[in-house]
Design a protein around this nucleic acid. Structure first.
Lengths: 111, 111
DNA sequence: AATATATTCAACCCTTTGGTTGAATGTCAA
DNA sequence: TTGACATTCAACCAAAGGGTTGAATATATT
């Protein structure tokens, strides 16, 4: 299972449009920090911070080559988050279904 | 499609263990604010605020009966988030696979 | 050696967030 | 009506988030 703190970090990282856009951009392959920052209207430093958040969440990996830092997308945490959400969702759905069934039965019993 | 702001709110709401626990609790049916707050070691007011966050994200619906507020879980946003994550994930996976394929081909072409 | 480039570090500034306490509001029950 | 209960509102606080600017570091280029 995914530790709660890990899930926190993953979801927090994903809960920001800039960071989602960064991941989007990295989906087509590695890119350097400056390249990743280029489309945004904020400072390079701001993007650098966003990248750090993604890195802490292990959604992005960094490979340093000389002065260049190559960033790449890592699928692990997103897979884990998807799995968590999905199992939780299904679990809840079945619980709610059961409840509904129960209420329906109770209704049907009323003559 | 889910509006970005909506997705932000959903993910932000989920990125907190207290709020996830609240949803967990609501999965077994409606509950009043005090009931929901009972298991936590924080003040009722703090929980009330968390509920508000869940409500803004439409993950929780409130039904007032006299002085009691009955809270219930709504599946919509979680379904949407799951769908978003999943399609994004698959899209990226295919992109990365394609890239890998490309590199493999290029490698194979080298005599 | 001097300069330009890629990136982070550090300090600062707002705003938001997650928590507190105390008072206010609305409803039920004696 | 008086008092207990369920809930929010309001003010406050400390910490975190997202942004800025300017300096520092490390590597390339000339």
């Amino acid at each position: 299972m995914t530790a709660p703190r890990t899930l926190d970090r993953t979801l927090t990282a994903l809960a920001d449009p800039t960071r989602r856009a960064i991941l989007q951009h990295l989906s087509s392959g590695e890119a350097r920090v400056t390249e990743v920052a280029q489309p945004f209207s904020m400072s390079l430093n701001a993007v650098s911070k966003h990248i750090l958040v993604l890195e802490r969440a292990k959604l992005v990996k960094r490979r340093k080559v000389g002065r260049d830092h190559y960033l790449s997308y890592r699928s692990g945490p997103l897979d884990a988050a998807a799995k968590w959400i999905d199992t939780t969702r299904h679990f809840w759905a079945s619980r709610l279904d059961t409840l509904e069934q129960l209420l329906r039965d109770e209704d049907a019993a009323k003559p």
